[in-house]
Design a protein around this nucleic acid. Structure first.
Length: 465
DNA sequence: ATGTCC
């Protein structure tokens, strides 16, 4: 029986899960059938005290009793922390997750962006301000996942005349897929940083080095396109430019940091009820909290370096200069002052949008994205969406769409797709124009990016190098 | 999003 199934039967993750797995194994050895096991587990979850002295189930019953006693000690708050959402018709489960996050005793305020959808713990598009603590799953698995856009000193006509050259630059200078890495690692000063701030960064340093300059999988991409400025801005004259846009994060090492410290956070907060366990926090003045904070910041520098390598190598491959560079994290936590109070602001799939702060909000492989300038709205905790947001689950998208229709959609818009999974097609995403409209008070659009040559990980892409 | 330990 798998942990997931046991969890559905009411076994909380953590110490009780371990006991449950062992008990189930022993019971199966004694001839318990699957249905009997399910029934028995449910009975123990219901009344663990009845099984306290049972030879087979006693240990599980004891750990369940302990966990449930901790949970009973959870002290809720009189009223949830204030929060509001931007955009209508947001996914119900994402709204529920946001509301739950505002029930945490450590939460000061929240905000939900118009691209919101269900995540792990905090929803994607969720912003959460806490006092003196950090929540690993409110930062996200891909710590410091970010966007970077560079304008290249290259004629826009290259998008039609030099497609093979551009394609070659992407193929050659980054790698896609889970576990993607370079045999000959990229050179970057981030590898001279102190990687011993956490046992996780220390032991993953070599893997991180080999993955420097890679793109990973999921919704990550590298694409060439046009950047259109209607007015002089960003140090550029109004006009149409050739630009390179990338989306990726801290790869395997960032995920390992998240995994390690969220486990610790959960073990330190056994009192949290079921709907809040994935929002377990670490006090910043604790050893684990300080370690996570240092590791998270290192992953921030690492993800920045990751994009720097991608853009440096591609521009170098093409032999062109970079005219403009814009970038921003969207899975990160910052120390910021709000209402005169120093808070920890977590943005999970949300773009920093302080007054005058530049950010990038892409739509999808076949729809425009926008370079934006924040308007500094306090209520949104100085944030905006980080994209259009999914409107369909990956499974649903794979079942519903086919490549023939998608290709036709992309052809119409002059987009060449090098590779991607069917779960990333434009139709699986919300309408970016509507999302931008619902956050008009949060950001001003400065320039439009239209993707023209796009690469994402294939459904089953594995490293080639 | 990751990579195979709940």
């Amino acid at each position: 029986m798998k942990a997931r199934e046991l969890n559905n039967l009411g076994i909380p993750k953590g110490i009780a899960m371990q006991a449950a797995m062992e008990a189930v194994k022993a019971a199966a050895g004694k001839g318990f059938k699957r249905a009997e096991l399910r029934e028995r587990i449910a009975a123990i979850v219901e009344s663990p005290e009845f099984f306290a002295n049972d030879e087979l189930w006693g240990t599980l019953a004891a750990s369940l009793t302990e966990v449930f006693q901790h949970q009973a000690r959870f002290v809720g708050r009189d009223a949830p922390a204030p929060w509001r959402q931007w955009g209508d018709g947001l996914e119900g489960s994402a709204v529920d997750q946001m509301a739950n996050a505002c029930k945490l005793p450590v939460t000061v305020a929240g905000a939900l962006m118009p691209d919101a959808h269900q995540g792990y713990g905090l929803p994607i598009g969720g912003v959460l301000a806490t006092k003196d603590c950090v929540i690993p799953y409110a930062v996200g698995v891909d710590i410091a996942c970010r966007m970077k856009l560079t304008v290249l000193d290259m004629p826009v006509s290259a998008l039609e005349k030099k497609t093979d050259t551009l394609r070659g630059a992407i193929e050659r200078e980054t790698q896609f897929g889970i576990g993607a890495s370079f045999r000959k690692p990229r050179d970057h000063e981030v590898m001279d940083a102190d990687w011993s701030v956490s046992p996780i960064t220390r032991t993953n340093r070599d893997r991180a080095w080999k993955q420097l300059g890679t793109s990973g999988s999921g919704n990550h991409f590298v694409e060439f396109g046009t950047l259109t400025l209607d007015e002089d801005d960003l140090g550029l004259a109004a006009g149409v430019y050739l630009a390179l846009l990338s989306h990726s994060g801290s790869r395997g090492t960032g995920a390992a940091v998240c995994d390690h410290y969220s486990r610790i956070a959960k073990s330190l907060h056994p009192e949290l009820p079921r709907e809040l366990v994935n929002l377990a926090w670490l006090d910043l003045d604790s050893d684990a909290g300080a370690e996570y904070w240092a590791a998270m910041n290192l992953m921030g520098d690492y993800a920045e370096a990751n994009h720097a390598c991608i853009h440096r190598e591609i521009a170098g491959h093409l032999g062109v200069d970079v005219l403009l560079d814009i970038e921003n994290h969207h899975n990160f936590a910052w120390k910021e002052t709000h209402g005169g109070e120093e808070l920890i602001v977590h943005r999970k799939g949300a773009t920093p949008a302080g007054k005058g702060v530049l950010g990038i909000i892409p739509g999808s492989m076949g729809t425009p994205g926008y370079v934006v300038r924040g308007r500094g709205v306090a209520e949104s905790l100085l944030s905006a969406s980080h994209g259009a947001g999914r409107k369909m689950s990956r499974t649903a998208a794979k079942a519903k769409f086919n490549w023939k229709d998608v290709k036709a959609f992309l052809d119409e818009r002059g987009v060449t797709l090098m590779s991607a999974g069917l779960d990333e097609v434009p139709m699986a995403y919300k309408d970016i124009e509507q999302v931008m409209a619902s956050q008009r008070d949060l950001v001003d659009s400065v320039a439009r990016f239209d993707p023209k040559l796009v690469k994402m990980a294939n459904a089953g892409e594995r490293p080639e190098d």
